[in-house]
Amino acid sequence: MRKAMVLFACLFVATAWASESGGHGEGNEPSVPDYILHHVADTNDFELEVPLSHPIHLGAIPPIRIGSCAPVMTDHGLQAPTGWPGLMAGCLDLSITKHTVMMWLAALLLIGTILIWSNRDKTKMVPRGTGANLIEMLVLFIRDEMAIKNIGKEDGPRYVPYLLTAFFFILFMNLLGLVPWMATATGNLAVTAGLALCTFFVTQAAGIRSAGLGGYLKHLTGGVHWTLWIIMVPVEILGLISKPFALTMRLFANMLAGHIVLFFLIGLIFILGHPAVAAVSVPFAFAIYLLELFVAFVQAYVFTLLSALFIGMAVATGHHHDDHGHADDHGHGHSELGPSHDHGKAHA
């Protein structure tokens, strides 16, 4: 990682010098905002970015589209999603984009790392080696400090695998974005929305599991007369969605903002047009880079923590409903859910 940082810094210094020798304002050079926005945007074109010059095109993966996808002609070419009908028009664009590839790369790296590090002598009770110890430390941290402290001793351990996966997956995507020539998948709203959707589903499942299907639906109606459900149910559903929405925006904004600030600091050299600016902005950019490393961990942590908190609140809502005379609904729901009787018994 240190090597990568040094490389990164060198790259920017080199860029600064190049700006003097190459000059600027030739017209076909991309402007700084263009460059930044292009860098953080998602495309299905793969290119190797060359500082201050046109990127080297690495080729594109042909788009994959499912459904009725007649192209909508626009002035700006066929850039998804502006040039194509959206999901509402019945077209699902499953194109493999830059961020999809980054996500897969992060997933592969994650699975590889975790499998290598967790592959230890299972007969020994104590882990041996840095990797195994590190993983176990994190596993224990997430179990004890997140799951149990936010969900509870009884239900917490059940959600530990989910929280662990979310934490490491986000962390790897965040860190991968800090490697030069890579992109931050978590800086894409669709990716964070997908992750938040996972938390949303798990939260709802936790609510149903704890309150029973009847109790869950009852909670959804807000406890008002059935004639008012037409207003109340959307209100409650919006309330449920607001939490994962906050998760989505938080992760997306944090990951994107850091990158934009980083690039903008470097871009300052070109905007001000003097290499001396590099003396200030490169150390600043380096500091921001270090901050970004920290943020990569913090955001993964925060996402996981909030997920645990939301799951815990859904579980608590279920418990709270038990206490208010929905015992019949509760029992009924559990019989539908099948393998969760142990939970009901704990209450009785």
Partner: peptide, 22 residues
Amino acid sequence: QEPPKKVASDGSELGSMARHMR
């Protein structure tokens, strides 16, 4: 039904944030 609630969701192991949020 109050006492069983105290037993089931005692909450002593919960963090302060979770308690306040709840």
